[in-house]
Amino acid sequence: MHAEPLSLIFLNAAIVNNFVLALFLGICPFLGVSGKKETAWNMGLATMFVMLVSSAAAYGINELLTELDLLFLRLICYIAVIASAVQLVEMFVKRFSPALFRSLGIFLPLITTNCAILGLALFQTAKEYDFLQSLVYALGAGAGFTLALMLMAGLREKLALAKVPDVSQGAAMSLMLAGLLSLAFMGFAGLGGSHG
């Protein structure tokens, strides 16, 4: 696992084991912010940035805690780092793009409870990636998340104009769509190597 090439790590995180459609991480923003393509794109970028920061920080923390033999504090430290990273992004976005800040609304602080980010930190620890591998993994996961969000937003923008039965409106329809997307992504299984 250690010698895993960077290109495969990226491919694996972004497409084969897509965080949203294959691993079920980050479903809440996936269903919540996928109404419009533009918001979806910005949300994807913000999430990718938080992923990169927290992935780098999580790597350092894990080394430190292993050194000190305090591994039971890992979870608490990770979530604290993620919360700080989200705070950072929030301040950054508010300063440089107030319009974007308003359009993301409540979902910006909610990145903290996006399990894709915590999941990323936990997975990279479990897979024992080194620093560079972790960063590439984070980049891939972020790209995959953005891809899933954009696909969903595109579908839902089209669907908003279509006439669907009353009974299937709202979340039920979104979930069925997500199921179809997930089914399509299963076609990538086996691409780029046999490791999970």
Partner: peptide
Amino acid sequence: ILPPGGFFVLGAWLLLFNW
């Protein structure tokens, strides 16, 4: 039992409750 099934079954339950 694969990922798509999760989405489909939850979607189906929501359809039932909507109905």
